[in-house]
Amino acid sequence: MLELRLVQGGLLKKVLDSLKDLVNDANFDCSATGFSLQAMDSSHVALVALLLRSEGFEHYRCDRNLSLGMNLSNMAKMLKCAGNDDIVTIKADDAADSVTFMFESPNQDKIADFDMKLMDIDSEHLGIPEAEFQAIVRMPSAEFARICKDLSTIGDTVVISVTKEGVKFSTRGDIGTANIVCRHNTSVDKPEEATIIEMEETVSLTFALRYMNSFTKATPLANQVTISLSSDLPVVVEYKVAEMGHIRFYLAPKIEE
């Protein structure tokens, strides 16, 4: 028996909106730790890892570890029917072939339940080693989204370079080139407007902008995004999900042959 009650149901809507374009079908794993997901895009270039810790739910009952295979665009369709302020409860029986999403309006005057068919999904779980990063950039998530969107009008790939000067996002295309440099800046009115660059070593990596733009669908989840870089390793683009967890996108770099 699984029963997860999330008061901030709007968070789940935002989570699905940030996943559904990258991944078609995925297993949601439910354990005492929390509600999690690991999935790759169909070309195995990007990976997403979601964790919503059990403490973040108002009520969290998971009698035994369960894996719920869901089509993410169908799940997003169902969650779209919840109000942004609704309380969302996810329910499933141990041997269930469906999952129930219950939506309660904040003043309890409207209660809806949506039942969605589950599916069997063969997914390989990858072990993600703990890595020391050469550079970690924290910046406003909206700024990062803007940069990715702007650069993708000019080129297909972005070179992200971190040096003492700051973090530089560069692209080139048929019409020309573009470089955007963001400097370390903590003298801001609000902490979420800060850009914090921690650099152990200079690093420069090339990534496909198509994937970066897909990751920025998570922007409504968090004011800040964390970009962790190391030479010849996938970049990690992380958004916090309120106080209860995170969504991490891993993207393999493009490497010169």
């Binding site: 790759m40 070309s43 195995h44 270039v45 990007a46 990976l47 390989e124 779980h125 990858l126 072990g127 993600i128 080693p129 790939t157 090339t206 496909a208 390793l233 996938p234 891993y250 993207l251 393999a252 770099p253 493009k254 490497i255 010169e256 042959e257």
Partner: peptide
């Protein structure tokens, strides 16, 4: 030419 790597070449099956 930059070749797109796959995520599976960095992380192994657990």
């Amino acid at each position: 030419v930059n070749q797109q790597r796959q995520i599976t070449s960095f992380f192994s099956k657990s």
